[in-house]
């Protein structure tokens, strides 16, 4: 059983409305989301928590604030870097890639170029 997924029924807010499905790719892997979902929500529903690796240390990072304040969830969308996954809606055919560790060749023990 996936630890994540969608909250289909809610005792106060009611059932999730019918929405059309959009297809996108994350790190080259084809995935599906509902129309109107953010990149962060769609990926979390698919069980994906890691949205980027820290540019210097390479440690995994995911959403933190989910409303655009912290910039922890930045991904590359259709070639544009630094896009906040929590504020950006998934669109049909979107190519999304996780942020990767950057070379630090001048640093002792750093990541090679």
């Amino acid at each position: 059983m996936s630890a994540t997924g969608r909250i289909e029924e809610h005792p106060i807010l009611g059932p999730l409305p019918e929405r059309s499905v959009v297809t996108f790719r994350f790190n080259g892997v084809p995935m599906q989301a509902y129309q109107g979902e953010t990149i962060a929500a769609a990926l979390l529903a698919a069980g994906i928590r890691t949205l980027r690796l820290h540019e210097e240390k390479g440690t995994p990072r995911g959403i933190y604030c989910n409303i655009g304040h912290c910039f922890e969830c930045r991904v590359t969308v259709n070639g544009r870097t630094g896009i906040r996954a929590c504020l950006t809606l998934v669109e049909e055919g979107m190519e999304i890639t996780a942020g990767e560790i950057l070379p630090t060749p001048l640093k002792k023990g750093g990541h090679p170029a």
Binding site: E8, L44, I63, I67, C70
Partner: peptide
């Protein structure tokens, strides 16, 4: 900073607005 750690407000928005389970 481990993925799966989030602010309490992030969990609120994910749950009530986006309707996706945080865990």
């Amino acid at each position: 900073t481990i993925p799966g750690v989030m602010s309490i407000g992030a969990a609120q928005v994910m749950t009530n607005v986006h309707r996706v389970r945080v865990g």
